[in-house]
Amino acid sequence: MGETLTIRLTVNGKAYDRPVEPRLLLSDFLRHDLHLTGTHVGCEHGVCGACTVLLDGEAVRSCLVFAVQADGAEISTVEGLATPSDGSGIPHPEDADLHPIQAAFRESHGLQCGFCTPGILMTLVPFLEENPDPDEEQIREALSGHLCRCTGYQNIVTAVRLAADRMAT
């Protein structure tokens, strides 16, 4: 390893203090240094959106951010989405711990191979906070920064609408 800098940040509420090379991508830092492998990497050039995480509440592509740039930040990844049972009215009791968006993806068959899914979920969290009642066009617009090769997007759109309905009640 070349010269390193030490960064301090929290990921899913947990504080970390790590030496990193300046060139280390945030996506690699999360996946390979912290072993939070739920965040996926599909292109490493900012197009596919698989690597999306929340950085101080905002959805960013972690393949376009260096780990050192996240010094002092609060990061959320897919691993932090589910909370031990909040009983949010989800009809499948075994899914009660899931975030309503996660549960809606399962119910609507919004994922097939599931590789694109964590990134999409992370985009949707702030999207639904800002747009609690989105129409189809807004949903598709929000998803257009993500590539999914399996689903044709249709069931993802359905899932987002379902999650919005659930979260409204």
Partner: peptide, 23 residues
């Protein structure tokens, strides 16, 4: 029938193991 998929929970929570996740 269309039961919900058995694999989904692992995929939705980031627990599913893909090759690049092997350490």
């Amino acid at each position: 029938e269309s039961p919900l998929r058995n694999e989904d929970r692992r995929l939705l929570t980031g627990e599913a193991l893909f090759v690049d996740d092997v350490h």
